[in-house]
């Protein structure tokens, strides 16, 4: 009896938080999405599917998000993995600490400032000027999907590095020796032992980055020059400019549904791997 009470007490703050901060807003969004825009903006109660029928008007924003979020996740993975590997496996203990701190340090400043720096790096007086020195002219980087991708990878890299680093760090180095001992050269050992054993880290990192990217709006706004539009940007516009709460809610609800579906599929995939493995759980 007493144990039950303690359990309830322990779960109470989280439950309250969950209900008020997550469930309630979602309910409001769901209700609004069937309403209409007021004459001067805002929301007018109604029951109509018009907002959902109008979704194709944001097709490009959905498309950009659904292309660049996975692309950004993949690019971050490809860059983060070797870095995490170096940190976890190859760096000497002294350097490891220094390098890890260097990975974290950017987090001490806001993503906004760091992304703003990229405006200058990718802008006309940044990399394109450097390229001109070596004879490559007319390269334009800023305000392109590529610039957004660069910003995304830069901004989210640490979120990818750390889970992978942790899974590689706890990897038993004797397993690598065992593999070599059984006749496997280093590259094959990596493919057959290191990589599969770092899947938990990869799965966590990809999940974190992907989910956050689906709602991203700052980086496309800054590095896309308003031309590379994510769903997040569409939502900012709908609520802060055109004040179309009903339509904005429909777009938001759709994003939530897309995320739920994607994440569920992903969880299933990870769970299937997890069935075979003790070290891979759902996240």
């Amino acid at each position: 009896m007493q144990g039950k009470w303690i359990n309830r007490l322990l779960l109470m703050p989280a439950t309250a938080w969950f209900l008020v901060m997550l469930v309630l807003p979602l309910v409001v969004v769901a209700i609004f999405s069937f309403g209409e825009r007021g004459a001067a903006g805002g929301y007018v109660p109604a029951f109509t599917l018009d907002q959902y029928l109008n979704l194709p008007a944001r097709f490009t924003a959905f498309k950009n998000t659904l292309l660049l979020a996975p692309a950004g996740t993949l690019a971050a993975l490809l860059i983060a993995y070797p870095l995490a590997y170096f940190l976890a496996v190859r760096a000497s203990p002294k350097w490891k600490t220094i390098l890890l701190v260097m990975v974290i340090v950017p987090f001490w400043t806001s993503i906004l400032i760091r992304t703003y720096a990229w405006i200058f790096i990718l802008g006309g007086r940044g990399i394109p000027t450097l390229l001109e020195f070596i004879g490559i002219e007319g390269v334009r980087l800023i305000n392109t999907p590529f610039a957004v991708l660069v910003g995304i990878v830069y901004g989210y890299l640490p979120l990818m590095v750390f889970p992978i680093y942790v899974s590689l760090e706890k990897l038993d180095k004797r397993l690598l020796e065992a593999s070599a001992d059984l006749g496997s050269p280093p590259l094959r050992t990596f493919r057959q032992v290191t990589l599969p054993l770092s899947i938990p880290g990869i799965a966590t990192g990809c999940m974190l980055v992907f989910i956050l990217l689906m709602g991203e709006f700052l980086i496309p706004a800054l590095l896309g020059g308003g031309k590379v539009f994510f769903i997040g940007n569409a939502l900012v516009d709908l609520f802060l400019q055109s004040r179309n709460w009903a339509y904005g809610s429909a777009v938001a609800a759709t994003l939530v549904i897309i995320m739920l579906v994607t994440v569920t599929l992903y969880m299933k995939l990870v769970a299937r791997v997890g069935e075979q493995r003790e070290d891979v759980s759902i996240l």
Binding site: A57, F229, N233, Q241, N244
Partner: peptide, 17 residues
Amino acid sequence: TLTDPNRAELLARFKSA
């Protein structure tokens, strides 16, 4: 122009295109 839903939506379509 401030409250016209068509103008607001036009700009949004333009940006998200």
